[in-house]
């Protein structure tokens, strides 16, 4: 474990908690893409299949359970508990355009042609594009509540910190996970435009992010 990966995991946890609390306390999921949240729940499900078969550490197990529980709870809030506030007209990204290529690529480019490894690879590729429905929804509505932008900031920051973690592990352990690194770079690039808007608009104190 190194400080970059720890900060990355904390940033990821903060993002997921911010979103869950925003929906739970405001009793509304306006402006939130339910499709992205379903994709994230699928990412955790296909990545953490080894939750019961291999024990890494208490930390690893607890974080996996927390991510799984919170992501499914968020999907429940959006599609069941507060479904009347779900803006399905704006959440129109065709996720099949993500799932099919990601599934195909995970069969082509993986470390081992075994179910666990292919599903893990699928989760890595899927995570790099899972935020696209949410970013697409914001460009479509032209705005986002500031709490939603804070969620996106910490979510984007988490994988950027993981990139630093991989640089660190390469230099200290010679560890290099090509599939995770390439996907992580792609994932972080998708946030760059948002990061610019977040720094120049939201941090200037605007109550919400409105796209130019």
């Amino acid at each position: 474990m190194n400080v970059f990966r720890l900060l990355g995991d904390v940033s990821h946890l903060v993002a997921i908690i911010i979103l869950f609390l925003k929906i739970f306390r405001s009793k509304s999921c306006a402006g939130i893409s339910g499709k992205s949240q379903v994709l994230f729940a699928l990412v955790f499900t296909t990545r953490y299949l080894d939750l019961f078969t291999s024990f890494i550490s208490i930390y690893n197990t607890v974080m996996k359970v927390v991510f799984l529980v919170l992501s499914y709870a968020t999907v429940y809030l959006i599609y069941l508990r507060f479904r009347s506030s779900y803006d399905s007209e704006s959440d129109t990204f065709r996720v099949e355009f993500l799932l099919v290529p990601v599934a195909g690529l995970s069969f082509l480019e993986n470390y081992d042609f075994t179910p666990i490894e292919i599903l893990w690879t699928f989760s890595i590729y899927l995570e790099s594009v899972a935020i696209l429905p949410q970013l697409f929804m914001i460009t479509k509505t032209g705005e986002a509540e500031s709490i939603t932008t804070h969620y996106l900031f910490f979510l984007g920051l988490y994988r950027a910190l993981y990139l630093a973690n991989w640089v660190w592990r390469y230099h200290t352990e010679g560890f290099f996970d090509q599939i995770a690194v390439v996907s992580g770079v792609v994932q972080t690039i998708f946030y760059c435009d948002f990061f610019y808007l977040y720094v120049t608009k939201v941090l200037k104190g605007n109550s919400k992010l409105t796209l130019p």
């Binding site: 474990m1 995991d9 080894d50 974080m63 996996k64 470390y111 560890f175 996970d177 090509q178």
Partner: peptide
């Protein structure tokens, strides 16, 4: 590809 995964990352 040889499998470098240490499976310790979330």
């Amino acid at each position: 590809m040889d499998n470098p995964r240490k499976k310790d990352e979330l």
